[in-house]
Design a protein around this nucleic acid. Structure first.
Lengths: 167, 167
DNA sequence: TACGATTACTTGTAGTGACAACTAAATGAG
DNA sequence: CTCATTTAGTTGTCACTACAAGTAATCGTA
């Protein structure tokens, strides 16, 4: 087979990265679920909408910005619509497309949820790192993402992002 | 509320990290599922057992090494047992405890799955980074893990790990 | 030595995501 | 124009995970 196994250093990085990938979602989810009755994916959907012009985005664009497949997004938006946080309407210019728009209630929900979420992110990630490590992490994840999603059908949103819920 | 929002640099790192956390499991899972009919979590369970003395580990220890909760592990081991890859036996020294042991078939399965998995890890992660970045990533994830799992009930296994399936 | 607390797990159930199949609208080639 | 193809999204089913509750053995302590 002629396999290039991982070196000791590579393995050390890999084992830790796997642990982060495994543990991080749970930490984010439990805070948001407890304080705002949202999963972190639901939060990101609302957050992306909150930043968009007219707080409206086509499903495909929303899927790209949240790193999700369309079926997954469709189900989640369905549930958010049932809860009155989002509304869907057929797009006039292209009637295949659907626009998802944040409702007033949804906007309120993001605004309430954002501070606690950002605090959690700070506490568990950002404040654990030096400014230099933040820069390094950006370069590292950037390099990885080019391999994970070369087409960049997802992860198309690496500019903009201010506020609120931008994190 | 007085929230410390993320700076531009912090946000850049965070957005990319979230994307990695969201995309990586899918990439690993689809390769393993396609080539070996295993989820990546199932693979790690088998891999940890394959490295243990007598290819046997107590459920609690196995849960720690795979960053899983006990209920989750219990269900997964149940399924692996149904497929003949693992066997469970009550521990003689402490009859509350259960030992999970890799069967011959399970051992064979890991050995077959390991090369393809390691190749995927190399291709998508390791080979995307410079040796220096590997070192940086180790330090960064190490710092994060101290915040994500301070008690280290999970992630208790940061030594050893050689081969095969160690990655 | 008895009984409350803790530890080690298992089980049941409810909610989410993945995958495949489906519908409908817009292109595009002849 | 017309029909095949692509694009955009939805829906259904199944598998997996989380959470809560339950069981059983061990520890601690009085």
């Amino acid at each position: 087979m002629d396999v290039k196994w991982l070196t000791k250093d590579e393995l050390a990085a890999w084992v830790r990265l796997v642990a982060v990938v495994e543990l991080l979602p749970g930490v984010l989810d439990s805070q948001l679920r407890r304080d705002s009755s949202l999963t972190s994916f639901e939060y990101y959907v609302l957050a992306m909408l909150s930043e968009a012009p007219s707080r409206t985005l086509r499903m495909t664009a929303l899927a790209a910005q949240t790193n999700a497949t369309l079926p997954r997004l469709s189900h989640v938006v369905q549930r958010l619509e049932d809860r009155g946080l989002v509304e869907r309407a057929s797009c006039p210019e292209d009637r295949r497309a659907t626009n998802a728009q944040l409702t007033a209630e949804g906007w309120q929900k993001v605004r309430e949820a954002a501070p606690g979420h950002v605090a959690t992110v700070r506490e568990h990630i950002i404040d654990a790192l030096t400014p230099e490590q933040i820069t390094q992490l950006t370069a590292i994840t950037d390099a990885i993402l080019q391999r994970l999603d070369p087409s960049e059908t997802m992860t198309a949103m690496y500019r903009r992002h201010d506020e609120p819920g931008g994190a």
